[in-house]
C-alpha cells in the first residue's frame, strides 16, 4: 500500500497508464470498439477501483461491496481493463474482447464476467439500475455505495432525468454519479448535436449535489469522491471535465475516435505515446 499521498498519486498514474495501453491493445485486436470514451474516463475508473471503492475482487458477490455501474456501456474496454488489472479475471483474457464465445462482450453483460454489476449499452439505463441497488442498500441498512458513470451525450436520454428525479426524491445519498464530460458524441460536439448543457445547473435543479472537477486530476477526483461520501440526504454528481481520447495525441478531442479501432500502425504509435515515461 502506498504510504503517502505522493506515492498514491504515482501509483494511480501508473495504473491508468497500463489501463490505457490495455484499451488500445484490446480495441486494436478486436478491430472495433470505443477507444475515445474509454480513454477519457481512465482516471475516474482507476481511482474508484484502486482507492475509493470497498471491494473484494476475489469475492465479487460480497453483499457489502461498493458497486460500479458503467452506464456508458460502450466504454466496456475501460471497465474490462480495470477489472483485469484489479484481479477480477486474468489479463490474458482481455484480447478476447468482442470475439465469439468471449466473456468480454461488446458491451458489459451481467453474469458473464466477475465484477460486471449490470448489463448496459443501451444508453440512459445505468442510473436507474444504480438507483435500485442504492434503494436496496437503504432497505437492508447496508452501508455500501453505488457509483454510476454516465456519458455527457447520454444526458440526452429522457430516462436519465427520470432517474435523476427519483434518486433525489428518495434521498439516496449512497448513490454518486460521475459524468464523463468530454464534450463529444458520435455526430459531433454535444453542444451542437442536441445540447444537454448547462449540465451543473440541470443536475442541481433536479435535487443533486454537484461538484465539478478536472477528470484527469487524481487529486481532484480523490477529493471529490471524499466529498461525495459526506453528502447527506441527496444523491451526488461529480461532473468530470475530460478530453475524449486522452493520452493518445491523435485521438484527443477527435470525434472520429468515438467508435473506431486503430490499425496496427496507429496502435503502435498510441502505445509508444502511452508508455513513454513522462518528463
Amino acid at each position: 500500500m502506498p504510504s503517502s499521498q505522493e506515492e498514491l498519486l504515482q501509483d494511480l498514474e501508473k495504473k491508468a497508464r497500463v489501463i490505457r495501453s490495455d484499451i488500445i491493445r484490446m480495441v486494436a485486436e478486436a478491430g472495433s470498439g470505443h477507444p475515445g470514451g474509454s480513454l477519457s474516463a481512465a482516471e475516474i475508473v482507476t481511482v474508484l477501483y484502486f482507492h475509493v471503492m470497498r471491494i473484494r475482487p476475489d469475492e465479487p458477490d460480497w453483499p457489502d461491496r461498493d458497486r460500479f455501474v458503467l452506464s456508458k456501456g460502450h466504454a466496456a474496454p475501460l471497465l474490462y481493463a480495470v477489472l483485469a488489472e484489479r484481479g477480477y479475471f486474468p489479463a490474458e483474457e482481455l484480447i478476447t474482447l468482442r470475439k465469439l464465445g468471449s466473456r468480454l462482450q461488446g458491451h458489459p453483460a451481467f453474469g458473464k464476467l466477475p465484477g460486471i454489476e449490470a448489463s448496459t449499452g443501451s444508453l440512459g439505463q445505468g442510473l436507474s439500475i444504480s438507483l435500485g441497488i442504492a434503494l436496496a442498500g437503504k432497505i437492508d441498512h447496508r452501508d455500501y455505495r453505488v457509483y454510476a458513470l454516465l456519458g455527457d451525450g447520454e444526458n440526452e436520454e429522457g430516462q436519465v432525468w427520470e432517474a435523476a428525479m427519483a434518486a433525489a426524491h428518495y434521498r439516496v445519498d449512497n448513490l454518486t454519479a460521475i459524468l464523463d464530460y468530454n464534450g463529444l458524441q458520435i455526430d459531433g460536439p454535444v453542444a451542437d448535436v442536441l445540447s444537454p448543457l448547462p449540465l451543473p445547473e440541470k443536475w442541481r435543479s433536479f435535487g443533486w449535489e454537484v461538484r465539478e472537477v478536472d477528470g484527469h486530476s487524481f487529486e481532484e477526483l480523490l477529493a471529490a469522491f471524499e466529498w461525495a461520501k459526506g453528502v447527506h440526504d441527496r444523491p451526488s454528481m461529480i461532473i468530470a471535465k475530460t478530453v475524449k481520447g486522452k493520452g493518445v495525441s491523435f485521438m484527443e478531442n477527435a470525434v472520429d475516435w468515438h467508435g473506431k479501432a486503430p490499425d496496427r500502425e496507429q496502435a503502435e504509435k498510441a502505445l509508444a505515446e502511452l508508455l513513454a515515461v513522462p518528463s
Binding site: 453483499p63 449490470a118 436507474s128 435500485g132 436496496a136 432497505i139 427520470e162 428525479m165 427519483a166
Partner: peptide
C-alpha cells in the same frame, strides 16, 4: 416514469430483492 421504474426494479433485483 415507467422506464426508470423498470431500471430501478432491475437494480433492486441485482441487490437480492
Amino acid at each position: 416514469a415507467e422506464q426508470n421504474m423498470m431500471g430501478t426494479a432491475a437494480g433492486l433485483a441485482l441487490a437480492g430483492k
